[in-house]
Design a protein around this nucleic acid. Structure first.
Lengths: 183, 183
DNA sequence: CCTTAACTGGACCATCGGTCAACTTGTGGT
DNA sequence: ACCACAAGTTGACCGATGGTCCAGTTAAGG
């Protein structure tokens, strides 16, 4: 069991990190600053999260949980029940929306991550997308196509379209790309 | 004009960098090590290339020149003359081949780059791909689709498929994806 | 040659992610 | 109510990094 003060500090650190990320440039958010902003010692941050990557992953996982639940056990069209093609479209819509609302956090995680492709989140997303593609269109190399599609969600592209306020252009573009590929 | 000793050092630095990149892990290739391996002072490296990003960009540009020349003024199907769809296919084949032969260099550049999307190389590639898409299939959002397709060339995906020796799987997958999208 | 602008080297700097050993504190058992 | 001790906290400290700076060196044109 996690002690009460430990839990309080964990929350303080996560909140401080997200606050710093939203108000400062990524390169200015050092572990020292996070600790200071959270009002704890630097050692505490590392004790809780292991390293920079761990901290950022924890933050991302927090933001991503709703989506994960949504596509594994939520109602259609995101969750099970709808035809694969519709579920895929719903998934990419949801992911783009989530990513645009959390670009800074996603970018921070990407940058701190040693191997993105093996992070639990990427693995889960890839398995989901890959599975849907396979059942919607068995002739495709589902595993590969899933990687290619997920590659579109890199934070730098998201940032680009977010800055110009064209995030729905991205969403529609991706959507139509997915549907063309499955046909 | 560049002095003779300066030119010699530039070459030595570039060669040392590529040698270090190919034999060591990316994180172990520091500017100090590059300088040492090239047999010059650290100051010289920074004087020549400005910063880490500049050095890596110079290296990439060296490797990429042949391809750039190829698609702007070389013979078809890569260069002008062939129908857009064929030129696109040729371009992605060439790019995958080039990327697989230089993953480490590309990865180093990506990691050191502040904003990939505005680097001269990305801009040139995007303009090329976007133009071909527009003329092959005017109903598409060419600019966007070009970004999405180029996103597939991220070094981490390349590394993944290179490690397992499946780079031609990637190439064929991308090729068929492109042709499906244009139809 | 000789002048001078270009080039060079490496000590130096701030900062970073991460460690650690000494200290404090929450908690479950009695 | 107390105590023992596991769990948590802290910040000084460490090695490494990218980048700066300037005193000294050197190539090259007149």
């Amino acid at each position: 069991m996690e002690r009460a003060d430990a839990a309080r500090n964990r929350r303080a650190i996560l909140r401080a990190t997200e606050e710093l990320l939203s108000s400062h440039d990524l390169s200015e958010v050092s572990m020292d600053r996070v600790a200071a902003a959270a009002g704890v010692g630097k050692g505490t941050v590392f004790h809780r999260f292991g390293n920079r990557e761990g901290l950022m992953r924890a933050l991302v996982e927090e933001r991503v949980r709703a989506l994960s639940d949504g596509f594994t056990s939520g109602p259609p069209p995101l969750g099970p029940g709808a035809p694969p093609a519709e579920r895929l479209a719903a998934f990419f819509d949801a992911v783009v929306e989530l990513a645009t609302r959390n670009v800074k956090v996603m970018a921070a995680f990407e940058q701190a991550s040693t191997d993105r492709l093996n992070s639990p989140i990427y693995l889960a997303w890839h398995a989901h997308v890959s599975g849907l593609i396979a059942s919607a269109s068995p002739s495709l190399d589902a595993d590969l196509v899933a990687h290619l599609l997920l590659g579109s969600l890199h934070s730098d592209l998201m940032l680009r379209f977010l800055r110009t306020g064209e995030t729905d252009r991205l969403a529609t573009g991706l959507r139509s790309m997915v549907s063309t590929l499955l046909r």
